[in-house]
Amino acid sequence: MLTTAHPTADPPPTAAARRPRAARQALLLGLGLALLLLCLALSLALGSRSVPLPTVLRALLGTGRHDDPGVQVVTGLRVPRTVLGLVVGAALGAAGAVAQGATRNPLASPTTLGVNAGASFAVVTAIYALHLDQPVQYVWFAVAGAALAACAAHAMARRTGDLDPTRLALGGTVLAAVLTSWTSALMLASRRTLDEARFWLVGSLDGRGLDVLTPVLPLLLVGLLLALAVAPALNALALGDEAAQALGVPVARIRVAAGLAVVLLAAAAVAVAGPIAFVGLAAPHLCRVLLGDDHRLLLPGCLIGGPILLLTADVLGRLVVRPAELEVGIVTAFLGAPLLAVLARRATR
């Protein structure tokens, strides 16, 4: 009987070959951290009113004069905004990496799977029916909506017991379109709901204090721990369900844990900043180009890359129409739409 080797199978790298690669990956992660620190500094310094970096440093150290307008801007407005950008960007980046790994779909993200749309629909429904008016009240509605949307997209993607990545992307896109239409209908039905929800739905880091993080921190921590726990198993899932099962990976349980991680991370991010698109799609792809496909490195890379993308978009939104500003959700959508088109074209090839 004739046997043939897999045409793309490569011999495993030797220890000598792995050492330079590991050194390169460590260097890239270090450079990523340095770039993240630069983004944090720019986020604190730039805006409708630029603040010199020495003033920013004095404000952070508490040595600046309290009547200094620059110190007041940094401590009162930009520190909360920058911290929220750091947390939300990390959550979206990690959620996108786990979603793509668990579904074996390069187009998967909280946006394309309908998770963001589900969370948004639930929040707007709660604003309409329960007259909510504070972001801290949105958390559990966002979680419930994200979970239901994820389950619906997963159910539509099942085919003869297996998860079809193409059907998952199409089902998530259709679900997101339907939920977005229903969300718009609710907002049009109530002027109060429109006034309350429209600023949040655009996706923004402005006008929120650090108190909005308090109710979502447990969700973020649990979601991050789940994501880190399933990262090694996601490498096995990339080989296919049958191969992963042959390696002893409990595929069904890993997918449930990964799905829960995506829901918790995405719902917490949406509850804090609204539905921000494309960060969860772009960060894993950019990190995969630099760090490779190993999710044990890819996930930490996305925890760095996600905030870099979001903070960069936020700073650009402050500068392009200064002294006014564009909300960060508008900037990420504008920059991310061409990326989605390129990725979709590559996926069809």
Rank of each mutant, 00 (worst) to 15 (best):
R322T: 13
L77E: 06
A129P: 07
A147E: 12
L28N: 04
T348K: 13
G30Y: 14
T160C: 02
L210D: 10
L290Q: 10
R318K: 14
A268I: 05
L290M: 15
L299D: 01
A273V: 13
G89P: 03
P165Y: 09
V139N: 11
A271H: 11
S190H: 00
A150W: 05
A108Q: 13
A277L: 11
V88K: 06
A324F: 00
T14V: 01
L221P: 05
G329C: 03
F141L: 04
D67H: 06
L326W: 10
A119D: 13
A122I: 02
S120P: 00
G207E: 01
A266K: 02
S48T: 06
G305A: 09
L326C: 03
D67W: 08
A15E: 12
V321Y: 02
S184P: 04
V222H: 02
L247K: 11
R346H: 05
R81L: 08
L179E: 07
A157K: 07
L148I: 11
A45E: 04
P12I: 07
A273S: 15
S181D: 00
P52M: 03
S43G: 08
E196P: 09
L213T: 13
P323R: 09
L226Y: 10
H295T: 01
H295L: 03
R24L: 11
A277F: 11
G114V: 14
V88H: 12
W182A: 14
L291S: 07
A26T: 15
L113A: 08
D195C: 04
E325N: 04
A227F: 05
P13S: 08
R349A: 14
A90N: 09
R198H: 08
L264K: 06
T8S: 06
G223P: 10
I304L: 11
T160W: 10
A17Y: 02
G317F: 10
A341T: 12
L40G: 15
V71Q: 10
I127D: 09
A266P: 00
P250A: 12
V71C: 04
L219Q: 08
P232A: 15
G47Q: 08
L175P: 12
V289K: 05
R78N: 09
P300H: 04
A185K: 05
M1Y: 14
Q100F: 04
L29K: 06
R21W: 12
A126G: 09
L186P: 02
A231F: 05
T214H: 10
D68G: 07
R198C: 03
A99F: 09
V270Q: 06
R349S: 15
G118P: 08
E327I: 07
L298E: 05
A227S: 12
A45S: 08
G62P: 15
G248S: 11
A176H: 04
A99D: 11
R191D: 15
A153F: 02
S181N: 01
I254N: 04
A97M: 12
V123K: 04
T166V: 06
T75K: 09
V88W: 03
L281E: 04
A144N: 00
L31G: 13
L319R: 02
G76P: 13
T55M: 00
R159K: 10
L61Y: 02
A153G: 01
L226G: 15
G209Q: 01
G76M: 09
A344C: 01
T160F: 14
L210V: 07
L163D: 08
V270A: 02
D206K: 03
